[in-house]
Amino acid sequence: MTLLDFARGPAMQWALIIFTIGIFWRLVGTVLLYRRRDFSQPRRKSGLPDGARAIVMRSVLPPELEHNIVFQHVTGYLWHIGYFVTVLFLGTHIPFFKSLLGFGWPHLPNAIVMIAAAVSLAVLVMLLVRRMLHPVLQKISTSDDYISVIVTILPLITGLISYANIGFIKETNLALHILSVELLLLWFPFGKLMHLFMTFPSRYQVGAAFGRRGVKA
């Protein structure tokens, strides 16, 4: 079995199994925890509208809050959008999703995707450096922050190397890229990357909690 066979075969299968079970375990384990009942009289009936509003509007803050975090917002959007464009719209990625999901979608031109990947990588590296230097981030960062950013960056680096076919032979480059993606999948349920799934219930909660007090959050 070649390295590429291993990466495409058992490594991918196990990575996907641990990714799926891990996410399920963490989501269910969190949701099943006891929730306190609130007997206070709500100012107005809340719930779905306030929660749904917060899911959307938490991305569009009032100016008096936004002006302190413009940098974080812009860089955050840049790398996330670049990353998802790369993952979802590179021509060579679509067949993988088609084999996994049973359906595919049109891809973007390689040049555009590579620009997106490069921007995403550059911003992630910049944010990693910022994490090491900023007084707040120095205080609150844990090993999870560094592991998560490294496993997020690695597929970009190996992907760009594979695309440009630098260094190793083509199959080895591709195998390393696939293995780096598997590393990301393996780490995903254990670290902060889980926010991809947790953000929505959390935003819903803040909207509903403030909503029952008559405040838009």
Partner: peptide, 8 residues
Amino acid sequence: ECCIHCGM
């Protein structure tokens, strides 16, 4: 569970 340690 969902803090990303962004410091905002």
